[in-house]
Design a binder for these strands. Structure first.
Length: 492
RNA sequence: CGGGGCGUAGCGUAGCCCGGUUAUCGCGCCUGGUUUGGGACCAGGAGGUCGCAAGUUCGAAUCUUGCCGCCCCGACCA
């Protein structure tokens, strides 16, 4: 693996793929553009899910589940939405196979079994969900409707990349309906905060909250809020989005409610989602040449204990010492594994758990037992220390918190170093290609300028930061007046 | 869909240009033994439709044609 911030993007891509394959998170699958998420990777996702789900419940949402298939006519109803997704849909046209009359042992699609209306494998669930909401909402008393779904979706992408862009991916999608526009906007902003809080405090990944330009908006949205993170190669990654959908879907699916004043009104909508792409973000943001580096709060395994011994007598001594440590750690709520398998030697285990990104490793051998200590190695700094037996569980608990915070601080420092203010077009191009990261520059607000900048440099406006101050300036490309800086970057 | 690269054992590969015994090496796997503080060592062993198909040839992993698949870059995108 090579992790230099190289201009040859393929090296970085190779590094990234290796991390995922060798770290045991996922594997390529037999199906084009899809991946197999292995138990270790899925455990990570489950930890992330659990925390997100807790936050959704805390903010008043409930989970439900809607069909995988969306009738084509549903998808058509919201025009912008339909246009946005049409070119990446998997379509079900038949419901039966039959034996091939010409080739024994082969199957063909039965032409007799053609569906009257094609079914689309959901690329997102707005259409099927709003069709249901039509029947669920009659009165202002039914509002707000705050529902989340954990599901898989399919988007037939031209080119795929493990976790970052697979044909099928796992995610959650929230779909809410509100009586007023203001309330819906508050919801969209609230969920953006939930995402930012999760990504920063659990994934240890700093994000910039902002809104997308009209060009980059979700198909069918009036406003798209997003959180943008920075990867170690200087490219930006959209880590989550929350959309204010206005009344577009309400109108498309005729979802109206009666107000207190007995008037018919269309409801106001939001939708928001994060996906397994977050795992890709995690991998690219924290890992190093030794492998994955996982933040303690979501790591499937927080502590691994490796015994060192010669012969069964020493093994028994180590076992004895480990027994109480294991009990202490478990009762402190720490996930821990004692790897006393005799198949591999300590050095092999050290390397293996580093590859998997386990935050803390404890090694115990005869020397340690004699001295009343254990050896503790932390994954983030690779620092090793001998720590006395007394209060070990507390020490480790604190160390996990320290690693969590160190990872965040490290990523934050990197991110902040890579936000560069530029005021000229030459500077803009130089910073983008030579330094990377976010380029903070004035933009005249025109989609046309945005497009031209993209054509010239491949950079897109990642977001208009929510805390960008008003500042008079001139567009870095057109020279037209601008009131605010926006963030440009090359992106995944 | 365009450009580049690749396909040989579970994994990673040599051989291909210039066709010729039994297809190379490493890791992993199995057996036995010695080992165990940073990916152990010795001895023995198992494992192959050389991506698929056709062609050229006395003879093809190697040459020709077609097809399939994967990775990287671009367009598209969370």
């Amino acid at each position: 693996m090579g992790n230099e911030l190289t201009s040859r993007a393929s090296d970085y891509a190779q590094w990234y793929n290796d991390l995922i394959l060798k770290g045991g998170l996922a594997d390529y699958s037999a199906v084009r553009g899809c991946m197999v998420i292995k138990p270790y990777g899925y455990a990570l996702w489950e930890n992330m899910k659990a925390e997100l789900d807790r936050k959704f419940k805390e903010t008043g949402h409930v989970n439900a589940y809607f069909p995988l298939f969306v009738p084509k006519s549903f998808l058509e109803k919201e025009e912008g939405h339909a246009e946005g997704f049409a070119k990446e849909c998997a379509v079900v046209t038949h419901y039966r196979l039959k034996a091939d009359p010409n080739q024994k042992g082969k199957l063909i699609v039965d032409p007799e079994a053609k569906l009257e209306e094609e079914l689309i494998v959901r690329p997102t669930s707005e259409a099927i969900i709003w069709n249901a909401y039509k029947d669920w909402i009659q009165s202002y008393r039914d509002l707000p409707l705050l529902i989340n779904q954990w599901a898989n979706v399919v988007r037939w992408e031209m080119r795929t990349r493990l976790f970052l862009r697979t044909s099928e991916f796992l995610w959650q999608e929230g779909h809410t309906a509100h009586a007023t526009s203001e309330e819906a906007v508050v919801e969209a902003e609230k969920m953006l905060d939930v995402y930012a809080d999760f990504v920063e405090n659990y994934m240890a990944l700093p994000v910039i909250k902002g809104v997308k330009t009209p060009n980059e908006r979700f198909a069918g949205a009036l406003e798209t809020y997003c959180i943008e993170a920075l990867m170690q190669d200087g490219k930006a990654l959209q880590a989550g989005t929350s959309h204010f959908l206005g009344q577009n879907f309400a109108k498309a699916f005729e979802v109206k409610y009666l107000t207190k004043e007995n008037k018919q009104e269309y409801v106001w909508a939001t939708s928001w989602g994060v996906s397994t792409r977050l795992i890709g973000a995690l991998v690219m943001a924290h890992s190093d040449d030794e492998g994955l580096v996982l933040p303690p709060r979501i790591a499937p395994l927080q502590v691994v204990i490796v015994p060192i011994y010669k012969g069964p007598e020493q093994k028994m001594l180590v076992d004895e010492k480990v027994k109480s440590l294991l009990a202490d750690l478990k009762s402190a709520g720490i996930s821990v594994k004692y790897d006393d398998s005799d198949n591999s030697r300590p050095g092999w285990k050290f390397a293996e758990y580093e590859l998997k990104g386990v935050p803390v490793r404890v090694a115990i051998g005869p020397k340690d037992i004699e001295n009343g200590v254990v050896e503790i190695a932390r994954r983030d700094t690779k620092e090793k220390k001998s720590i006395p037996n007394e209060g070990l569980a507390t020490y480790i608990k604190n160390l996990l918190e320290e690693i969590q915070s160190n990872l965040y601080q490290r990523a934050l420092a990197f991110r902040n170093e890579h936000i560069t203010r530029v005021d000229t077009w030459d500077e803009f191009k130089t910073v983008l290609t030579e330094k990377g990261g976010f380029v903070s520059a004035h933009w005249d607000g025109s989609p046309d300028t945005e497009e031209k900048i993209k054509e010239a440099t491949k950079a897109t406006i990642r977001c208009i930061s929510l805390d960008a101050p008003m500042e008079e300036g001139k567009c870095v490309f057109s020279g037209n007046p601008s009131s605010k800086r926006v963030l440009f970057a090359l992106a995944y």
